[in-house]
Design a protein around this nucleic acid. Structure first.
Ligand SMILES: NC(=O)c1ccc[n+]([C@@H]2O[C@H](COP(=O)([O-])OP(=O)(O)OC[C@H]3O[C@@H](n4cnc5c(N)ncnc54)[C@H](O)[C@@H]3O)[C@@H](O)[C@H]2O)c1
Ligand SMILES: NC(=O)c1ccc[n+]([C@@H]2O[C@H](COP(=O)([O-])OP(=O)(O)OC[C@H]3O[C@@H](n4cnc5c(N)ncnc54)[C@H](O)[C@@H]3O)[C@@H](O)[C@H]2O)c1
Lengths: 213, 213
DNA sequence: TTATTTATGTTATATAAATCACATAAACTC
DNA sequence: GAGTTTATGTGATTTATATAACATAAATAA
């Protein structure tokens, strides 16, 4: 399939909007509604759906229920998505206790750290020693980790994880890690994002429909 | 100018790479070097520079010193970039104490919260009551805020900030806020990013050169 | 000094992504 | 039940973004 890289991100947004619409008691939705909510054109909404054979009714739009459950399967949201947090410092601990994750089916199953002071194997979400990472991810079939270790440790940690069943990481250190063969990296670079926002505010011509990035 | 939306982000990456090269004692850099480091083609690096009249030497590449200081001006990194954190809970506190920000010239000048229990006007980075936000940003000429309040408060907070000198926010709540007229929003949606990573791992055809997003 | 090498700067080309436009079919109207 | 409305689904077109190609000028070598 000729899958555009942004389309999955948009499907996820459509899904979230529809989940909220459903809570309001709504039953159907039109491409115009989703377009407005997500900030794209209606035709792109339809094309995105069409690309994955998500069909609606020639007049009555799409049935929310139907579409959400199909999207759940498509996006893998019908299964619990297990992640581990590597580096339980300020940011790592915030992520471990973030209640937004369980709400959307993301389950933080453990944290790992090298500092004995922060370890706690008995906590609801245990914090284990980093030396146990390989065993743990293997035993628990973890495919995703969040990297919240100091920048100098990041590359080494990636090299370690590559030898396990972990297939991708969200990297929070401000260095642009690159994906390779079977190992995907998504970078969340807050410094970069703030710098970029400053630039757009102070130097870029103000473009009203500048997208949310 | 016909500015591509991604180019500023790349300039920022080039700059970071060059700063590190400089620390290693290097003096000049070639488009190939930056291309490798950032994961784009050398011609794109040159085009990005050319777009902003950043020129090198027909044979000897670019002088790092020169380029970094020009990029500093271009990106506004020659001035301190002041931000406030709105919502000093788990994530907000992590951001307030994040040592990566000062390191790149981003200064968190204050936090704001509605919960009296977390206020501390005497701390090095004071945490003030949210009712003081308007006065503070006006007096201190703040143009950027990080939004780390619970999702239901986000829209209201944006409406408040729009009436001040704040011209943009980084939104950490998992709802896709849209930019409008003179008010820019950059969304950092971790839930979305993790979902997307899961999808790419489990369903997408493994594409080695899948970019860092 | 002349030839050769090499990396820039820029134009031409290719690829990717989004919008436009419209034929189509379902649902309403009279 | 014929005509009208309306929103989907998709091919054609436009716009955006990245790569490839190459002429050019500085540096080196002969
Ligand atoms: N604090 C933030 O809000 C924030 C924001 C953006 C990015 N980040 C990035 O996230 C990372 C962590 O930041 P932080 O502020 O939480 O730092 P921190 O110092 O509070 O936490 C880092 C943790 O990693 C642990 N650690 C160090 N080496 C390790 C190793 N080899 N194996 C396992 N654990 C190890 C430390 O013991 C510590 O607990 C950094 O790369 C930082 O740039 C943080
Ligand atoms: N914790 C994380 O790691 C994490 C990760 C991703 C996104 N987020 C998002 O960041 C936001 C904050 O998450 P958190 O985990 O820090 O939550 P939290 O409950 O720990 O913190 C929220 C803070 O906002 C304050 N607050 C509430 N209403 C306010 C108002 N009207 N004005 C000012 N302050 C107000 C609360 O007093 C509290 O201190 C949420 O939207 C969440 O979805 C958090």
């Amino acid at each position: 399939m000729n899958t555009n890289h942004e389309v999955i991100r948009r499907l996820s947004k459509y899904r979230n909007v529809m989940r909220k619409m459903k809570e309001l008691g709504l039953v159907k939705v039109f491409s115009d509604n989703l377009a407005d909510a997500v900030g794209v054109s209606p035709s792109l909404v339809r094309k995105d759906f069409s690309m994955f054979n998500l069909t609606g009714n020639k007049r009555g739009g799409y049935r929310i229920d139907d579409l959400v459950s199909k999207l759940n399967v498509l996006l893998g949201k019908d299964k619990k998505q297990k992640v581990v947090i590597i580096g339980c410092g300020k940011l790592g601990q915030a992520l471990m206790n973030h209640n937004g994750f369980p709400r959307v089916g993301i389950r933080v199953v453990a944290g790992f750290d090298s500092d004995p002071a922060v370890l706690d194997a008995e906590a609801p979400i245990p914090i284990l020693h980093i030396k146990e990472i390989k065993d743990f991810v293997t035993k628990n079939q973890i495919s995703v980790a969040a990297l919240t270790v100091p920048e100098p440790c990041v590359q080494g940690m990636v090299d370690t994880l590559k030898k396990t069943c972990v297939k991708g990481v969200i990297n929070f250190a401000p260095l642009p890690l690159k994906s390779s063969d079977g190992f995907l990296v998504h970078n969340m670079n807050m410094e970069q994002e703030i710098e970029n926002l400053f630039y757009n505010i102070h130097f870029a011509e103000t473009n009203p429909t500048d997208s949310d990035i």
